[in-house]
Nucleic acid binder design. Structure first.
Lengths: 118, 118
DNA sequence: CACACACATTGACAATCATCGATATAGCCG
DNA sequence: CGGCTATATCGATGATTGTCAATGTGTGTG
């Protein structure tokens, strides 16, 4: 395939391909960066965690408030929360024995921006 | 755990939990539904596919245009495209031998809505 | 100090997934 | 009809992931 002059606009260098529109499409690095955020959102239990934290009194919740509604073990919930923190979606603040999780301000909006600017 | 009366507002039924705010947080079904969309977005190559399709001439691209910029085999690209179609993000139209993929109108906006209404 | 509690971390395991090679389907052209 | 091309599907495989039990860490309390 792609001998010389076919009728399809087959790119020669496989980098900037075939779109004379706006952006030159996502490069591999940017795609991996954005995918890591969506990976954090790609689990129903993590979505529920975000939802519960967002709807909690004062906008924050501790782990002990989160294990029961999800019907999951405490280590599993801790694991999910860590992924959400690493993705920049949740903020963790330790007060005494408890760890309070809250939405990072603007994180949701920033994430929708990742979609809109595809 | 959850013997009888501790000091935390432990819900008795693990359904509506502990938020006297707006929504009663996501139920398991809705969470799974939304997660399936984000699962489709949780791969860098699929994000690049969406980006290339969106930026392509006429808003559509066929498989042969997509394998080279991603540096992936044709079966793999077909597989990713299927996932994006199943998620309701891409539309597939067969014309002759070619299959043309295009963004489903409003799909991106609907997806951002899944985030905003958490 | 000793104990209890809230949370994090580790190790293991089953399930899901991304990728590839091989093959199947189907439209076009000689 | 017979080959060629574009795409889809299948089977296998290595990698990632969600979950749990067990354990570690740090903080408050008797």
């Amino acid at each position: 395939m792609n001998s010389a002059e076919t009728l399809e606009p087959t790119a020669v260098d496989a980098e900037v391909c075939c779109e004379p529109s706006g952006q030159p499409s996502l490069d591999d690095y940017e795609a991996q960066l954005r995918a890591s955020v969506f990976k954090a959102l790609a689990d129903p239990n993590r979505l529920r965690l975000l939802s519960i934290v967002k709807g909690s009194e004062g906008g924050e919740a501790c782990v002990c408030d989160l294990t029961q509604p999800l019907n999951l073990g405490q280590p599993t919930v801790s694991h999910h929360l860590r992924i959400l923190v690493d993705a920049g979606l949740l903020h963790r603040e330790k007060r005494g024995t408890w760890a309070y999780y809250s939405l990072v301000p603007g994180a949701i909006e920033r994430t929708t921006g990742l979609l809109a600017s595809l």
